[in-house]
Amino acid sequence: MRAIHYLQRYWQLYIMLLPVIAYFFVFKYMPLYGVTIAFKEYNPFKGVNASEWIGLDVFRNIFAMEDFYTALRNTFLLNGLDFVFGFPAPIFLAICLNELKFASFKRLSQTLLYLPHFISWVIIGGIMYQLFATNYGIINLLLAKIGIAKIPFLSDSSYWLVTYTSVGIWQSIGWGSIIYLAAMTGINKELYDAADVDGASRLRRIWHITIPGIRSTIIVLMILKIGDMVDIGFDRPYIIGNVMVRDVSDVLSTFIYRVGLQNSQYSTATAVGLFQAVVGLAFVLTANYVSKKTTDESII
C-alpha cells in the first residue's frame, strides 16, 4: 500500500524516471543475452539462437592461450600504475586548489586543468608522437641540439610505461579532482576557523580536517577503482602503443579487438569480456568487504 501511495503522490517524478529506466533496459540489460555467445560456437550466419552450444570449451581455449596471459598481465600492470600514481593525483590537486585564496586564479586553473579531459585520445596520441617520437619529436630534437642522447619515450618498454602513466595522469587529473572539491565544500568551515585560533599550520589543517572530511569519498572511489583493475579502455593503450612495445601495451581490450574483430573469433572475445566482468565484480565485492571491516565505509 505504501508503494501505491508514493506512486500516486509522486507520479510526475516516476514519469520522469521512465526514460532512464528504458535506457538501462535497452542498452544495459537486453544486450546481456549476447553473453550466451561465450558458451556457443557462434556463427554470424546462424545467429545467436541457432548457434551450437559448446559449454566451457571457449574458456578452456582462452586459458590455454599465451597471448591471453600476456594481455592479462599487462592489464594489471598498467592499471596498477594508474592506481598507484594516478589515483592520489586528483586528491593532491583538489587539496592544492582548495587552498588557493585568489578566486579568479583558482577558476582559471580549474578550467585549464579540466580541458585535457575533453580532448580525444586520438588527438592526444598525435600530440604525443609530435612531442616524444625518437626521430622527429620536439623534445628529442631539442635534446639532440644540446648534445644529450635521444630518449626512446615511445619505443622502449620502460620509458613507454612512464610516458603512458604520465599522460594518463595529465589527461584525467583535473576532471578527477571535481569530486573531491565537491566533497570539500561539505566540510564545516568552523573547523578551519577553530584550527586557525589554535595556531594550526596549513599542513596540519589539511591533515586533520581536509583529508578526514573527504575520507568517505576517497574510499568509495578507491573501491570502484579496484573493481576496474581487470578492465581497461581500448583507446589509450591502442593509440599510444606500437609494435616495439607490444610486450607491455597489449592489454585485454586490444586482445579482444584483435581476436574478436580482426580474427572473427566472436565467442572468444565475448568470453574474455565475461571474464573481465566476473573478476571485476569479485574485486569490487572483496574491496568493499575489506573496507567495511576496517574503516566502516562501503558502497553497499
Rank of each mutant, 00 (worst) to 15 (best):
V220S: 13
I256A: 05
W207C: 05
A183D: 12
D235L: 11
T163V: 06
L97S: 00
L274A: 10
Y192K: 09
H117M: 09
S216C: 04
F25C: 01
E52G: 03
E297V: 15
T254M: 04
R205E: 05
F68D: 06
L143K: 12
L7V: 14
A149T: 11
L285I: 12
I219H: 04
L108E: 03
I91V: 14
K40D: 02
Q262S: 09
A103L: 13
A3W: 14
E297G: 01
Q265G: 04
L56H: 00
L181N: 07
V58A: 03
L143W: 08
V162H: 03
Y136S: 10
P212M: 07
Y159V: 03
S172M: 14
I54Q: 12
N263V: 03
I138V: 15
S155C: 06
M222N: 07
Y238L: 13
Q130P: 00
F87K: 01
A133K: 14
I232F: 05
L113Y: 10
F255G: 05
Y180T: 09
V248F: 03
K189V: 09
G137E: 14
G233K: 11
W11I: 13
F39V: 11
A144G: 08
I226E: 02
F92N: 03
F24Y: 14
I95C: 07
G55A: 06
I123F: 03
Y42R: 09
S157A: 15
K189N: 12
V26T: 10
K189L: 10
S109M: 15
I119F: 06
G280C: 08
I226R: 04
I148N: 01
S120T: 15
F255S: 05
D250T: 09
Y180E: 04
T36Y: 09
G80Y: 04
T294M: 15
G47L: 10
I187T: 05
L221Y: 13
A277S: 14
K150R: 15
K28M: 08
G227M: 05
F24P: 00
M16P: 03
N61E: 15
L161N: 02
G233R: 10
I138L: 15
G241E: 11
F24Q: 02
S104D: 00
I226S: 02
I54Y: 10
A22C: 12
V272R: 02
M229W: 01
I178H: 06
G125M: 08
